[in-house]
Design a protein around this nucleic acid. Sequence first.
DNA 1: ATGTCGATTTGCT
DNA 2: GCAAATCGACATA
Length: 204
Amino acid sequence: MRLPHSFYRRADVVATAQELLGQHVVRATADGIMRARIVETEAYNGPHDRACHAYGHRRTPRTETMYRPGGVAYVYFIYGIHHMLNVVTHEADEPYAVLIRAVEPLAGTDLMLANRKLSRLPNEQPPKGTGNGPGVLCQALGITRALDGTDLVNGTELWIEAAPYVAAAEIIASPRVGVAYAGEDARLPYRFRIRDSIWTSRAK
DNA sequence: ATGTCGATTTGCT
DNA sequence: GCAAATCGACATA
């Protein structure tokens, strides 16, 4: 079962970021299908969040996707190298999004490894390679700007399926990564990860 | 038209 | 721990 529009359109991006933990990202390509469990997210709290691309209602060709109704993907390119996968939330014209920061591979791992040009999962703990880190997971799942604006509820290339919520006691909240430019807002505890998962990104 | 810098990752010191 | 990689979005002119 895919997550419905109502899941994405609720006006509480911080709650949605926590509830996305445990849900399954599914990516379908010509080469096959991949499935991964979300283990780390970050909330971007719209116009009042200095760390958000849409801070102050900034509206540009890039941020336009965030103004769409909740339930589409916001994918952008950063540092000349990496793509970032976000889930747009709230109703139309309300620019909020959740960054998917890390996933645990569940199926199609061979495809993810091929996309990453690796032959096998590394042995080290935590394992690096297919899911830990927002740029790495996009490469593993073959996600680029071609998927910006993709409909997660009715689309055929990328969607999210419902899985049990992660209990609050299992969720660790901490400040977001790489947003020092956001001043006070950089300290907000909007990064969420599953306590015992070995698949989250490195703590900073 | 041009300059700055980024919601990162990796490898080398 | 630190800096390079690498390019496009955005602001400024």
